[in-house]
Amino acid sequence: MIQVTAKILEKEEVAPDHYRLALDAPLISKDASPGQFIHVNITSQYMPLLRRPFSIHRITPFGIEILFRIVGTGTKLLSEKRQGDELDIIGPLGHGFSIKNNAFTAILVAGGVGVAPLFALAERLRQFTEVRILIGSKTKTGVICLEKFEALGIDVQVATDDGSLGIKGVATDLLEDFLATSASPQLPIYGCGPMPMLRILSEIAHLYSSPCQISLEANMACGVGACLGCVAKIANPHSPSHFEYKRVCVDGPVFDAREILWR
């Protein structure tokens, strides 16, 4: 991990309230792997005070890309940055997806802006395996990166809550349908999205004995494992209480779905 000042090379509004930034950060990209994140100082003022973590959307020889949705003050300010502006960033951070080189089809399941880290993952996975992505969103304007995945030759299926694109339903409905009809057992699943979706995803993966890795989101302070502000409840049979709190920033953000205690 390093702290660098990175210039914004490209800025694109990919959908209403959704932005993609390409950052000039070759020293970060050379060590980055899918599922990791960067920690961005959005302003040198004290409002908002803390850095904001963003999963790495794309890894290129020149740097990295992030993809985010405006959800509050920090992301709003970030969306107002322009091409050529500089950002103080730290990365690559966190424990990303473990990628096993096997012949199975990989199934990626995204909820909303959860597609962000899955694009970097898809670019990596498709080098040696078939990749399929299932994207869920409230409505069709929130379905992002569809064409980008298709351009990689990846099979994309879409579900929207209102049925404005793809099936009417959620991404995990697509997953259940796919697994129920698939001849190959135990297909590896990779997910990112809201917690309720990830919970259902984990249950489905468990039902089909599929290995499942999920990327969690959390508010963070330090981002490097020092403050213990961002933790997830993880099963630990060796602990008297059978659980422990693990840091999303260094032990995650990607966890094996079986480890997560949802209650």
Binding site: L49, L50, A221, C227, L228, C230, A232, K233, S241, Y245
Partner: peptide, 18 residues
């Protein structure tokens, strides 16, 4: 010590609660 449940941090005006 396990520590407290999440959320554990909240950003406030020019500060944070933990």
């Amino acid at each position: 010590r396990h520590g407290n449940p999440m959320p554990r941090i909240v950003e406030t005006s020019a500060g944070m609660l933990n």
